[in-house]
Nucleic acid binder design. Sequence first.
DNA 1: TTGAAAGCGCTACCAC
DNA 2: GTGGTAGCGCTTTCAA
Lengths: 340, 340
Amino acid sequence: MATMPPAKRPSLIDVAREAGVSIATVSRVLNEQGPVRPETRALVLKTIARLHYTPDLQARALAGRDSNTIGMIISNIENPFFVDVYRSLEQEAHRLGREVLVANTGYDPERLAASVRIMLGRRVTGIAAIISEMEPSLLKELVQSGVPVVMYDVGGAGRNIVNVRVDYAAGMRETVELLYGMGHRHFAFVGHHTALSPLSVRWQAFTTAMEQLGSPVRHQVVTNADSLDGGYRAAHQLLDAGNRPTAIVCINDLMATGVLRGLRDRGIDVPGDISVTGFDNVPMSQYLAPQLTTVDVPRAEIGRIAAERLIQPKRARGQISDEILITPKLIVRESTGPAA
Amino acid sequence: MATMPPAKRPSLIDVAREAGVSIATVSRVLNEQGPVRPETRALVLKTIARLHYTPDLQARALAGRDSNTIGMIISNIENPFFVDVYRSLEQEAHRLGREVLVANTGYDPERLAASVRIMLGRRVTGIAAIISEMEPSLLKELVQSGVPVVMYDVGGAGRNIVNVRVDYAAGMRETVELLYGMGHRHFAFVGHHTALSPLSVRWQAFTTAMEQLGSPVRHQVVTNADSLDGGYRAAHQLLDAGNRPTAIVCINDLMATGVLRGLRDRGIDVPGDISVTGFDNVPMSQYLAPQLTTVDVPRAEIGRIAAERLIQPKRARGQISDEILITPKLIVRESTGPAA
DNA sequence: TTGAAAGCGCTACCAC
DNA sequence: GTGGTAGCGCTTTCAA
């Protein structure tokens, strides 16, 4: 028994040959472009079906048409926040007839660089960078590529860059003031590694808000991985360090969820003994016990805006950069209460 | 001031011209293949950097080398279960030098069909279908495409298909027996729409387990969207319907989380009044209060196996199909207790 | 060690 | 209406 040849996938040529027409005609029916006699059309369609022909998108993109795809890079798909932005961006992209190529970096700078190369290599028509950090050199590469880019959290300037910013300062101020008003004077901030950076907008927003409160207020900081477990460990570290705070402000809901669990393990009541706040208002935050006090960041809006800007970048010439500011909103739930 | 031309991206030709060598040479240094004089190599590299050249992956794939990409289709990225499988598959793929192309169908059959077309169109070297349903015609198309496929939950046979199955029957039996042993006689099953299908392995596993318990045991069913909110609404429906069960078995942790919240809203104590179980053992299940009794499905293993099978499909000839069975394990936590 | 040239599968333009 | 054909950017023989 002879070994079968690798059974190459059928191409336009195969379809054309089988149908007895030219490849140009097949292409026409495929793209519903230009005139084709109904009968010819039907024949071609039948042949395509018979051969299980699937157009090669790479070749199609190569031959002039663009890739019809926008890329999205996120730093932690484990965090529901990013997933929500992704879903909204994808929905909008599909509505506008585009596909989405996702890449998850896991906060790894190398993966980020690789992801950018892949996106550029696949000739995406735009890139949404929903990440927490970006090396200047990479950013420069992105600017020079000329591809439309929407950035979130990390800034950047260039005629092809649009920045989406959340007014963290406002959100953090509301949070801190709520707590302060409830009598809290000893705060702790729980963040993840990337948040150490002076570039971290959330961290900066927190310190600024604290400074505005004045001198009698103290705070300490714990950093860990951006995960449920990271928050969990942070809570234990905080308690082990002694000098217990009465309010714990977390960089996001994911970590706050871990903190809540860590405190419960140690028999600490929330908000009776300690108050806890998150940030983002991910769906999960409502399903916890106690429900999390947090700051709502409109993820759906962010994804939608990113898709829009990427797909219809009809921007005025000469404009250096663009900035979109989003205002978050404090949502008070059960995890905060008067200082013990 | 003249309008700038669209500033096409530099190609191999541009690099070759600038460096004064042939495109073949540039290609060689790019792929670290064949002999190239160190000085030539250095020159080319410098030129590439200067021009910010990024190879066109589509063209590369077209010209013979494969796309170096495996595709993954999931049905609900909102469910952490799928995200975990994705992360593990991606990690393994990267370890083996491959990229991953993800598609989320949101349980939409049309999106599923579109996703398959896109994967095939991009000439992925394999597809992991981690979904809950698949139309027979689509499945057939997949088989005929000849692309290696790994399927989870939904079956399929073909020389290019590998099935990963979880022994839901075992997991459900353990769950139901735990509850029965605690005195429960009135069960409710909470599933999502897809679970209505007689093809749904989880639903079948539940009914089978119930039958084995004998006649004095009753059960009712509620279906809703596969989401936190879906579970939440299911709980309310269950309570409104009267004839309250003492144990609620949920199709997965996502819905169980919603159920927990719904019960709490109605002042019902878990597990004091009603016991609740989930399935999957997603990270979140440990962070709830009460912590969820659930069945652990090794997601990381599933992702790893999928990647392996897809990337090294050195399978024996003539083998009709392949099947991998994974045995889940019950994890008893706080959400289950003696019948009221 | 390097270059020339033949495709890969497709679109788009120009003839007929 | 339909066919021929020139690329798109790259890899890969085959010669030089």
